[in-house]
Amino acid sequence: MEIPRHWRIRKQRYGLVGEVCPHCEAKLFPPRDVCPECGKDAREPYHFSGRGEVFSFTTIYEPPAGFEEYAPYTVALVKLEEGPIVTAQLTDVNSKDIKIGMPVEMVTRKIRTDGDERGMIVYGYKFRPVLQEA
């Protein structure tokens, strides 16, 4: 039963909420309460802009259990404009169009269903190519 875990981390996962260090202003994601830059306490919530770029990526054709219905999909290391690198799925993009350095933005999407169709729907951040002006 994973419902309690999904529930506890919903804020950071729905909206990319991390922390900012009050001592050196480093931005932390995921939140870990201790600043990796200066080693001091960092518990101030910080809303990341959601903008970043693809740092590295790999396309998954043989997905782990629970993700079968989404395959193939691409997982990327995304370097946020505030500094941290996060691992997340890319969405709304063909794998052949993905490039290192591609600007992306955070969206909240379905990550998977907990168990079968009776299970809880797990939502969280993914990244997509930045929406273009028409």
Binding site: V107, I121, Y123
Partner: peptide, 13 residues
């Protein structure tokens, strides 16, 4: 909608 979209995700955006 994409495979990972529903009324909740679309409403959020």
């Amino acid at each position: 909608p994409g495979l990972d979209e529903d009324v909740a995700t679309m409403s959020i955006e």
